[in-house]
Amino acid sequence: MNIKTTDRWDEHLWHDASPLYMEAFQYKGAKPVNIIRNMFAQQIAELHVAYDESNAVGMALTGKLTKDRIMIIDYLAISRNEQNRGLGKAFVDALKQKARDEGYEQLIIETEAEETPDNKRRIHFWQSCGFHLTDYVHHYIWVPEPYQAMYLALLSDSRKMTGEELFVSINLFHQLSYRKVKKGRN
Protein backbone atom coordinates (compact mmCIF):
# COMPACT_ATOMS: atom_id res chain seq x y z
CA MET A 1 0.00 0.00 0.00
CA ASN A 2 1.32 3.41 -1.01
CA ILE A 3 -0.05 6.48 0.78
CA LYS A 4 0.00 9.98 -0.67
CA THR A 5 -0.53 12.85 1.76
CA THR A 6 -1.07 16.55 1.25
CA ASP A 7 -1.66 19.48 3.58
CA ARG A 8 -2.87 21.66 0.68
CA TRP A 9 -5.99 21.26 -1.41
CA ASP A 10 -5.09 18.87 -4.23
CA GLU A 11 -7.80 18.39 -6.85
CA HIS A 12 -6.20 15.20 -8.20
CA LEU A 13 -5.97 13.51 -4.78
CA TRP A 14 -9.49 14.63 -3.91
CA HIS A 15 -10.70 13.15 -7.21
CA ASP A 16 -9.21 9.79 -6.10
CA ALA A 17 -10.49 10.07 -2.51
CA SER A 18 -13.95 11.48 -3.18
CA PRO A 19 -15.67 8.25 -4.34
CA LEU A 20 -14.47 6.47 -1.19
CA TYR A 21 -15.51 9.40 0.99
CA MET A 22 -18.98 9.56 -0.55
CA GLU A 23 -19.45 5.78 -0.43
CA ALA A 24 -18.75 5.77 3.29
CA PHE A 25 -20.12 9.12 4.49
CA GLN A 26 -22.57 10.58 1.97
CA TYR A 27 -25.54 9.71 4.17
CA LYS A 28 -23.61 9.68 7.45
CA GLY A 29 -22.15 13.06 8.28
CA ALA A 30 -20.05 13.99 5.24
CA LYS A 31 -18.78 17.55 5.34
CA PRO A 32 -19.49 19.54 2.18
CA VAL A 33 -16.47 19.93 -0.10
CA ASN A 34 -16.39 23.70 0.48
CA ILE A 35 -15.88 23.05 4.23
CA ILE A 36 -13.10 20.55 3.50
CA ARG A 37 -11.45 23.12 1.23
CA ASN A 38 -11.81 25.62 4.07
CA MET A 39 -10.04 23.21 6.42
CA PHE A 40 -7.07 23.24 4.06
CA ALA A 41 -7.23 27.04 3.80
CA GLN A 42 -7.16 27.15 7.62
CA GLN A 43 -4.09 24.85 7.50
CA ILE A 44 -5.71 22.38 9.90
CA ALA A 45 -6.18 19.37 7.62
CA GLU A 46 -4.37 16.70 5.68
CA LEU A 47 -5.72 14.34 3.05
CA HIS A 48 -4.26 10.84 2.89
CA VAL A 49 -5.05 8.52 -0.01
CA ALA A 50 -3.98 4.87 0.06
CA TYR A 51 -3.30 3.13 -3.22
CA ASP A 52 -3.00 -0.53 -4.11
CA GLU A 53 -1.00 -0.24 -7.32
CA SER A 54 -2.82 2.60 -9.13
CA ASN A 55 -6.27 2.29 -7.52
CA ALA A 56 -7.32 4.35 -4.52
CA VAL A 57 -8.41 1.86 -1.85
CA GLY A 58 -8.53 4.10 1.21
CA MET A 59 -8.78 7.70 2.29
CA ALA A 60 -8.44 9.62 5.51
CA LEU A 61 -8.99 13.24 6.36
CA THR A 62 -7.11 14.26 9.48
CA GLY A 63 -7.25 17.41 11.53
CA LYS A 64 -4.26 19.07 13.12
CA LEU A 65 -4.38 20.87 16.43
CA THR A 66 -0.65 21.51 16.44
CA LYS A 67 -0.63 23.75 19.51
CA ASP A 68 -2.28 20.97 21.55
CA ARG A 69 -0.19 18.24 19.83
CA ILE A 70 -3.38 16.40 18.81
CA MET A 71 -4.21 14.80 15.47
CA ILE A 72 -7.86 14.01 14.83
CA ILE A 73 -8.89 11.32 12.39
CA ASP A 74 -11.96 13.10 11.07
CA TYR A 75 -12.80 10.53 8.36
CA LEU A 76 -11.33 7.19 7.38
CA ALA A 77 -12.73 4.94 4.66
CA ILE A 78 -11.61 1.77 2.94
CA SER A 79 -13.20 0.67 -0.32
CA ARG A 80 -15.98 -1.85 0.35
CA ASN A 81 -14.26 -4.24 -2.07
CA GLU A 82 -11.06 -4.09 0.00
CA GLN A 83 -12.48 -4.32 3.53
CA ASN A 84 -11.59 -7.17 5.90
CA ARG A 85 -8.14 -7.59 4.34
CA GLY A 86 -6.12 -5.65 6.93
CA LEU A 87 -5.86 -2.44 4.88
CA GLY A 88 -7.74 -0.33 7.42
CA LYS A 89 -5.45 -1.36 10.26
CA ALA A 90 -2.35 -0.85 8.09
CA PHE A 91 -3.65 2.59 7.11
CA VAL A 92 -4.24 3.54 10.76
CA ASP A 93 -0.76 2.24 11.65
CA ALA A 94 0.70 4.54 8.98
CA LEU A 95 -1.28 7.50 10.37
CA LYS A 96 -0.05 6.66 13.90
CA GLN A 97 3.56 6.61 12.71
CA LYS A 98 3.14 9.89 10.83
CA ALA A 99 1.62 11.51 13.93
CA ARG A 100 4.49 10.24 16.11
CA ASP A 101 7.09 11.44 13.59
CA GLU A 102 5.52 14.90 13.61
CA GLY A 103 5.49 15.14 17.42
CA TYR A 104 1.80 14.67 18.10
CA GLU A 105 0.97 13.27 21.54
CA GLN A 106 -2.58 12.05 20.94
CA LEU A 107 -4.62 10.63 18.10
CA ILE A 108 -8.34 11.04 18.66
CA ILE A 109 -11.55 10.17 16.86
CA GLU A 110 -15.25 10.43 17.53
CA THR A 111 -17.61 7.56 16.90
CA GLU A 112 -21.37 7.16 17.00
CA ALA A 113 -22.48 6.13 20.49
CA GLU A 114 -25.79 4.41 19.69
CA GLU A 115 -25.53 0.67 20.26
CA THR A 116 -26.08 -0.62 16.75
CA PRO A 117 -24.25 -3.55 15.13
CA ASP A 118 -22.45 -1.18 12.70
CA ASN A 119 -21.36 1.18 15.47
CA LYS A 120 -20.16 -1.73 17.63
CA ARG A 121 -18.16 -3.05 14.66
CA ARG A 122 -16.54 0.36 14.10
CA ILE A 123 -15.68 0.74 17.80
CA HIS A 124 -14.19 -2.76 17.80
CA PHE A 125 -12.07 -1.83 14.76
CA TRP A 126 -10.68 1.25 16.50
CA GLN A 127 -10.03 -0.72 19.69
CA SER A 128 -8.12 -3.31 17.63
CA CYS A 129 -5.96 -0.39 16.44
CA GLY A 130 -5.16 0.54 20.06
CA PHE A 131 -7.75 3.26 20.70
CA HIS A 132 -9.51 3.57 24.05
CA LEU A 133 -13.23 4.33 24.25
CA THR A 134 -14.28 6.94 26.81
CA ASP A 135 -17.52 6.71 28.81
CA TYR A 136 -18.74 10.24 28.14
CA VAL A 137 -21.53 10.53 25.54
CA HIS A 138 -21.58 13.88 23.73
CA HIS A 139 -24.76 15.38 22.27
CA TYR A 140 -24.29 17.96 19.55
CA ILE A 141 -27.04 20.52 19.06
CA TRP A 142 -26.88 20.26 15.25
CA VAL A 143 -26.79 16.45 14.71
CA PRO A 144 -29.27 13.96 16.17
CA GLU A 145 -26.97 11.05 17.02
CA PRO A 146 -24.79 11.00 20.15
CA TYR A 147 -21.01 10.49 19.94
CA GLN A 148 -18.19 9.15 22.07
CA ALA A 149 -14.51 9.99 21.84
CA MET A 150 -11.72 7.46 21.45
CA TYR A 151 -8.03 8.20 21.88
CA LEU A 152 -4.63 6.69 21.41
CA ALA A 153 -1.72 8.04 23.42
CA LEU A 154 1.38 8.29 21.25
CA LEU A 155 3.76 8.80 24.16
CA SER A 156 4.24 6.16 26.83
CA ASP A 157 3.94 8.71 29.63
CA SER A 158 0.70 10.27 28.37
CA ARG A 159 -2.07 10.45 30.92
CA LYS A 160 -5.51 8.93 30.47
CA MET A 161 -7.93 11.36 28.83
CA THR A 162 -11.61 11.83 29.63
CA GLY A 163 -14.27 12.12 26.97
CA GLU A 164 -15.11 15.62 28.14
CA GLU A 165 -11.48 16.70 27.63
CA LEU A 166 -11.34 15.10 24.20
CA PHE A 167 -14.54 16.79 23.07
CA VAL A 168 -13.05 20.19 23.94
CA SER A 169 -10.43 19.46 21.26
CA ILE A 170 -12.93 17.89 18.85
CA ASN A 171 -15.26 20.90 19.19
CA LEU A 172 -12.36 23.30 18.66
CA PHE A 173 -11.44 21.45 15.46
CA HIS A 174 -15.04 21.63 14.20
CA GLN A 175 -15.23 25.36 15.00
CA LEU A 176 -12.01 25.99 13.09
CA SER A 177 -13.28 23.89 10.17
CA TYR A 178 -16.32 26.09 9.72
CA ARG A 179 -14.59 29.42 10.43
CA LYS A 180 -14.28 31.72 7.45
CA VAL A 181 -10.80 32.32 6.11
CA LYS A 182 -9.55 35.91 6.24
CA LYS A 183 -8.74 37.38 2.85
CA GLY A 184 -5.10 37.07 1.95
CA ARG A 185 -4.69 33.67 3.64
CA ASN A 186 -4.33 30.60 1.52
Rank of each mutant, 00 (worst) to 15 (best):
A99L: 02
R100W: 08
R100K: 15
R100C: 03
D101Q: 11
D101T: 14
E102M: 10
E102S: 11
E102V: 00
G103A: 09
G103C: 06
G103T: 04
G103W: 00
G103K: 03
G103L: 02
G103N: 04
Y104E: 01
E105I: 08
E105A: 11
E105V: 06
E105D: 15
E105H: 13
E105S: 13
Q106D: 15
Q106L: 15
Q106E: 15
Q106P: 05
Q106H: 15
Q106C: 11
I109A: 04
E110L: 07
E110W: 07
E110K: 06
T111M: 14
T111G: 13
T111Y: 09
E112K: 06
A113E: 09
A113I: 09
E114C: 09
E114Q: 09
E115H: 11
T116V: 03
T116S: 14
P117S: 10
P117A: 08
P117K: 07
D118I: 13
D118Y: 13
D118K: 14
N119Y: 12
K120Q: 15
K120F: 07
K120R: 13
K120W: 00
R121F: 13
R121L: 12
R121Q: 15
R122F: 10
R122I: 04
I123L: 10
I123Y: 08
I123W: 09
H124R: 15
W126V: 00
Q127T: 12
Q127D: 06
S128I: 05
S128D: 10
C129P: 05
C129K: 03
G130V: 04
G130F: 09
G130N: 01
F131C: 05
F131E: 05
F131I: 04
H132F: 13
H132C: 14
L133A: 12
L133S: 14
T134S: 06
T134N: 11
T134L: 10
T134Y: 03
T134H: 08
D135C: 05
D135H: 08
D135I: 01
D135K: 14
D135Y: 08
Y136Q: 04
Y136G: 00
V137N: 03
V137Y: 02
H138G: 09
H138T: 03
H138R: 06
H138V: 07
H138P: 02
I141T: 13
W142R: 01
W142I: 02
W142P: 00
V143K: 01
V143C: 04
P144T: 05
P144R: 02
E145C: 06
P146T: 09
P146F: 02
P146L: 03
P146G: 12
P146R: 03
Q148N: 10
Q148D: 02
Q148M: 09
A149N: 03
A149R: 03
M150S: 01
M150L: 09
M150V: 00
Y151H: 01
L152Y: 11
L152P: 05
A153I: 02
L155N: 11
L155M: 12
L155E: 13
L155P: 00
L155H: 10
